[in-house]
Design a protein around this nucleic acid. Structure first.
Lengths: 144, 144
DNA sequence: CGACGATACATAGCAAACCTATGTAGTTCC
DNA sequence: GGAACTACATAGGTTTGCTATGTATCGTCG
């Protein structure tokens, strides 16, 4: 008999390995700076504090601090003190940041979408499913 | 009216960002050494040369050289000269490497599969679809 | 057969992305 | 008003990965 159907566990580990491969492939050929994830978060959720951003991006707080600093320097986000809590900050997307996000999205979109379109067996719905799976896996343990 | 359906391009760029997020989340909480990708490749395709591995993993040849060296040190792969071509090598998985792969697979599988199972809207089929999408996107421009 | 270009790898040097540990200022709660 | 907690910054180090370049082998062609 042929090998048995892959279990969820098999699929899950393949998911991770292939995701890692994809990320590196994209970084090589299209560039995927870490800051994009942050900008993407701000675009999706609106202004947030550094710690909230770190939680949402699943990285450590110091990492997010550094990322935000870089983004501020580039003018893609602003960091203001939180008026309700002097410890905290409020990081917000600037117009320039939004524009940059649009540019990167388009670059990635064009390239990846072309590959998917090229693949007879892959539909837009499949792509949506893949994103939903990733999103679902990520949102766990991350009660926003 | 609500926002329009996301285009392929939107989905594709979300795919990349979320994949990056997933990879980092997994690296933080479960550990995902770079060598796993190589072992996984060898398990799937059998013994290969360094350059072939680099192409399959979508990384540079020097990166793969370094990865293979590490794996040899750990005893997870062997590197022998290619009898048909004195320039080349043949990298093969050892039993220990296969065992390690199984361990990591199980760790990842358990954790991720649990998250998916927890998610009412995600089925095993969805997971399979997600893997197929990633695989499809990756195999392009990489005629093995 | 000998030179020349291509191929397979290795080495060197460097940059990006992260993390842990720790310090500091502000908040909360008794 | 002091202890415990929270938000963020800084320091230092690791992993991952790339480009540039060198070396040995292969293939080919005159």
């Amino acid at each position: 008999m042929p090998p048995p159907d892959p279990t969820d566990a098999d699929l899950a580990s393949d998911l991770v390995v292939h995701a890692a491969r994809l990320v590196r492939a994209v970084r090589r050929e299209l560039e995927l700076p870490a800051g994009i994830r942050v900008i993407s978060l701000l675009d999706e959720h609106g202004a947030l504090g550094v710690t909230q951003l770190a939680a949402a991006d699943r990285c450590s707080q110091p990492t997010m601090s550094a990322l935000v600093s870089q983004l501020v320097e580039r003018g893609w986000v602003t960091k203001a003190p939180n008026p309700d809590d002097a410890r905290g900050s409020v990081v917000a997307l600037t117009d320039a940041g939004g524009a940059e996000l649009a540019v990167v999205r388009r670059r990635h979109g064009e390239r990846i979408a072309a590959l998917v379109a090229d693949h007879p067996a892959l539909t837009t719905e499949d792509l949506a499913t893949a994103v939903a799976v990733l999103r679902g896996v990520l949102e766990k343990g991350n009660p926003s």
